[in-house]
Write a protein that binds this DNA or RNA. Structure first.
Length: 673
DNA sequence: GTAGAACAGTTTTTT
DNA sequence: ACTGTTCTAC
C-alpha cells in the first residue's frame, strides 16, 4: 500500500506518537498522504469511530474517506471501515457533539442554528431596540457589527483590541458595541439559537468542563486536521483541549495558501505549531505531482515574494510543457473573447470543459463571461458568490421550517408573520409573543387580532403550525409541500422573477426527500449549503460536461488541466478593499498563488487595460488598469507575454463634434413635426 | 402601523 | 446595481 509514496509521504503516514505537522505545498499529494495515513491507522487496528478528521469543507472529508476505502479494499460483508470515521468541518462536528453531549453544559438539544444572515438580522433588531443608531455618530451597520463580534470570538481578543486593529473608525462606539454583544448573547440563549461562532465556542467550552470534557476526549484516539493554515485561534485552542500536549494530533496545511485571514484565521497557527507543541515531528512535502516544471517555475517565483513563510521550493518530475501565459487585453470584452476562444479550442482538442476552470477574485468579475456563455449555450457551474440559501425566497421558506422546529426562534417567527399582508414588524412581534413565551403553537388563537387584509391567511397559518409544530408532524417533504402551498402565492405577490423562485422552492422540496429529520435538513443547509445553483439538481451525471467558474477562495484544494485567471490587475488582485497593511497584501499574494497553482498543464493570466470597475450606472467610470503588482518584471519573466488580439481592428472614433450623422438627427427630429 | 416611493451610500473572499 | 434608510400617504 505504501509503494506509491515518496519518502516524506511515507514518513508522514507511518509516524507514530507525538504531534505531527505536515507542510504540504500545492499539489504535493496531501490528500493521498492523509488518505494513506487514515487507512494505515485503521489497518493497525484503530477503530474508525475513534478517528476524527476535520476538514475545511465536508466535501473534502467525503472525498478523502472514499479514497481510504479504495486503499483498504472492500471487506465484502462489512460496512466500509471509513464510514465510521468522524469526518466533517469543525462546525458540523461541533454540532454533532453538542447534540450528543450538550445537555451536560446545560444546552438544550433542540437548538437551531443561525447562519450569517440570521445573525445579522438579530443584531439589527437589537441595535434598533437599544436605540444605538440614534446618536449623532453613525453606528456601524449590522454586517460590520457581526464582523467585529465574530472576529473577537474567533481570535480570542477583547473588542477594543479588535476595533483598534481592524475597525479603527468604530472605536468611538466601543461601549455601544459591548452592550449590543451582551444583549445578543442573552437573546440567543432565550431563543435557543446558536450562531456559527457559538458552535465553536460551545464546543470549546464543552471540552473545558469536568462534566463532558474527559468523555469527549476519550472518544477519539487520533485527530487529523486538514487546511490547518486556515484555522483561527479559537480552533487552535479547541484542538489543544481535545488533544492535550498534541497527543494523537496531526495537522496538515500550507502557509503559502493561507487565504482566510479576513475570517480571523491566523497563519501563526501553522507557523508556530512546532514551538507550541514541543516534540512535533515536521514533515515537508515538496515534490509536486500536479504541474509541469514550466508552470511551477512561474508559481514558485510568485510565492517567493511573500514576506514570511516556511521556505520551500517545489519541484516536479513531470514532463515539460507550455510556459504560463500573461495576456494583455485592451478591455473586458476582449478578455472574455480570448478566454472563451481558448476554452473552445481546447475542447476541440479533446479537453473536456470540466477539466478547465476560470478563476477570479470577486464573484462579479465573471458576470460578462457568464452572459456570453449563456448566449452561446455553453454549460457552466459557478462556485462562490451569492448563494442559493441567501436569496430572499429561500430564506423565507427556511424560516417557516425553522419556526416549526424551534418556536422560540423569534427571528424566524417575525419573518414568517411579516409575510402576511398588512403585517409589519410591530404586529408580527405581538402575534409571535405567546408562541415565543411558551415554546408551543397551542397558544395561537385563530381569533387573534390581525389586520383585515391578513385574516384569511392567518387562519391557514395557524392550521399549518398546529400540524407542523405538533407532536407528530408529517414527513419532511410533506411539510415542505404544505409550506409551499401556503407560501407560494405570497411569494408570487412579493417578488419578481416568480417562475425561477417557485422552481427553487420545488428543488428544496426534492432536496428534503433525502432527509428524515427536520433538524438535520436545516443543519445541513446552514452548515453546508449547496455551493452552486446547479448543485441542487443533484450529482451531475458523468457525461454531463460543464465549465467551472469559481472565486479563488472556492477553488481551494481543486486542480484543473487548464486554468484561466481573470482580471489580474492591481485593484482586483490585490483588492482595493483591503486596508493595505503588509499582512493583508501578503494574503492577497497567497490568494493569487492559490489561483495559479490550480493548473496542471495550461495557465493563462489575463488582464484588461481598461474596464468598468462597477456595473455601469450613470457616470460609471472606467479605469485604466495596471498589471497586478504581484507580477513585476523578474516574476513575469516566467510567463509568455502576449496581447490577446494583436491585430484587432479598432474603429476610429468619430470626431468629437459629430455625435450623430446630421441626416440621422434630422430624421429623428422630423418625427415631431 | 404598514407599504411604497424617494433618496443615499456602498460595493470581496465564507463556515 | 443593490441595499438600507427616511419620508409620506394611507
Amino acid at each position: 500500500m505504501l509503494e506509491a509514496l515518496n519518502d516524506q509521504q511515507r514518513a508522514a503516514v507511518l509516524h507514530d506518537g507525538g504531534p505531527m505537522l505536515i507542510v504540504a505545498g500545492a499539489g504535493t499529494g496531501k490528500t493521498t498522504t492523509l488518505a494513506h495515513r487514515v487507512a494505515q491507522l485503521i489497518a493497525q487496528g484503530v477503530p474508525g469511530e475513534r478517528i476524527l478528521l476535520l476538514t475545511f469543507a465536508r466535501r473534502a472529508a467525503a472525498e478523502l474517506l472514499r479514497r481510504v476505502d479504495g486503499l483498504l479494499g472492500r471487506a465484502a460483508s462489512d460496512r466500509p471501515a471509513s464510514s465510521r470515521v468522524w469526518g466533517g468541518t469543525f462546525h458540523s462536528v461541533a454540532t454533532r457533539l453538542l447534540r450528543q453531549h450538550g445537555e451536560r453544559i446545560g444546552l438544550h438539544p433542540s437548538f437551531t442554528i443561525h447562519d450569517r444572515g440570521d445573525s445579522e438580522d438579530l443584531l439589527d433588531v437589537l441595535r434598533a431596540e437599544l436605540e444605538l443608531g440614534r446618536g449623532k455618530r453613525r453606528f456601524p451597520r449590522k454586517g460590520t457589527c457581526l464582523d467585529i463580534y465574530s472576529r473577537a470570538v474567533s481570535s480570542r481578543a477583547p473588542v477594543d483590541a479588535v476595533l483598534a486593529r481592524g475597525f479603527p473608525w468604530c472605536t468611538e462606539q466601543l461601549d455601544g458595541l459591548k452592550l449590543l454583544f451582551r444583549t445578543y448573547v442573552d437573546r440567543k440563549a432565550e431563543q435557543r439559537v446558536l450562531d456559527y461562532d457559538d458552535l465553536l465556542l460551545f464546543f470549546h467550552a464543552l471540552l473545558g468542563t469536568e462534566a463532558a470534557g474527559p468523555a469527549v476526549r476519550a472518544q477519539f484516539d487520533q485527530v487529523l486536521v486538514d487546511e490547518y493554515q486556515d484555522t483561527n485561534a479559537l480552533q487552535a485552542e479547541l484542538l489543544d483541549r481535545l488533544c492535550p500536549g498534541g497527543r494523537g494530533l496531526t495537522v496538515v496545511g500550507d502557509d503559502a495558501q493561507a487565504i482566510y485571514g479576513f475570517r480571523a484565521a491566523s497563519v501563526r497557527n501553522i507557523l508556530d505549531f512546532p514551538e507550541i507543541h514541543p516534540g512535533t515531528r515536521t514533515v515537508v512535502l515538496a515534490e509536486n505531482y500536479r504541474s509541469t516544471p514550466e508552470l511551477l517555475e512561474a508559481t514558485n517565483r510568485v510565492i517567493a515574494q511573500a514576506r514570511e513563510r516556511h521556505p520551500k521550493e517545489l519541484w516536479s518530475r513531470r514532463p515539460s510543457g507550455e510556459r504560463a501565459e500573461l495576456i494583455t487585453c485592451s478591455d473586458e470584452a476582449e478578455q472574455t473573447e480570448f478566454v472563451l476562444g481558448r476554452i473552445l479550442e481546447r475542447r476541440e482538442q479533446g479537453m473536456d470543459l470540466r477539466r478547465q476552470a476560470v478563476l477570479f477574485r470577486a464573484s462579479h468579475h465573471s458576470l460578462q463571461l457568464e452572459v456570453e456563455l449563456g448566449r452561446r449555450g455553453i454549460p457552466f457551474h459557478k462556485y462562490g458568490g451569492l448563494r442559493f440559501v441567501e436569496t430572499a425566497h429561500v430564506r423565507d421558506l427556511l424560516a417557516f421550517l425553522r419556526l416549526a422546529e424551534n418556536p422560540r426562534d423569534l427571528l424566524a417567527g417575525t419573518r414568517v408573520l411579516g409575510l402576511l399582508p398588512g403585517v409589519g414588524p410591530r404586529t408580527a412581534r405581538a402575534l409571535i409573543e405567546p408562541v415565543q413565551r411558551t415554546g408551543s403553537f397551542e397558544g395561537w388563537d385563530t381569533a387573534a387580532k390581525v389586520p383585515a387584509a391578513a385574516r384569511a391567511q392567518w387562519q391557514a397559518l395557524v392550521a399549518l403550525y398546529r400540524e407542523l409544530g405538533g407532536p407528530r408532524p408529517p414527513a419532511l417533504p410533506v411539510q415542505l409541500h404544505r409550506i409551499r402551498t401556503f407560501y407560494g402565492p405570497l411569494c408570487e405577490e412579493r417578488y419578481d422573477h416568480v417562475t425561477a423562485r417557485l422552481r427553487d422552492l420545488e428543488s428544496l422540496e426534492q432536496l428534503a426527500a433525502g432527509f428524515t429529520e427536520r433538524a438535520a435538513f436545516l443543519g445541513e443547509l446552514t452548515l453546508e449549503p449547496p455551493r452552486s445553483t446547479q448543485d441542487l439538481a443533484g450529482p451531475p451525471s458523468l457525461d454531463d460536461d460543464y465549465l467551472v467558474l469559481s472565486t479563488i477562495h472556492s477553488a481551494k484544494g481543486l486542480e484543473f488541466d487548464a486554468v484561466y485567471v481573470l482580471h489580474a490587475a492591481d485593484g482586483n488582485i490585490p483588492s482595493d478593499l483591503t486596508t493595505g497593511t503588509p499582512e493583508e497584501i501578503d494574503e492577497e499574494l497567497r490568494l493569487f498563488y492559490v489561483a495559479l497553482s490550480r493548473a496542471k498543464r495550461h495557465l493563462a493570466v489575463t488582464f484588461p487595460l481598461r474596464w468598468f470597475d462597477r456595473p455601469a450606472g450613470v457616470g460609471g467610470r472606467h479605469a485604466f488598469a495596471q498589471l497586478t503588482r504581484f507580477l513585476p518584471p523578474p516574476v513575469a519573466a516566467a510567463f509568455e507575454l502576449r496581447a490577446a488580439f494583436p491585430e484587432a481592428p479598432r474603429p476610429a472614433l468619430p470626431p468629437a463634434d459629430a455625435f450623430l450623422l446630421p441626416e440621422l438627427r434630422g430624421a429623428l427630429k422630423a418625427f415631431w413635426n
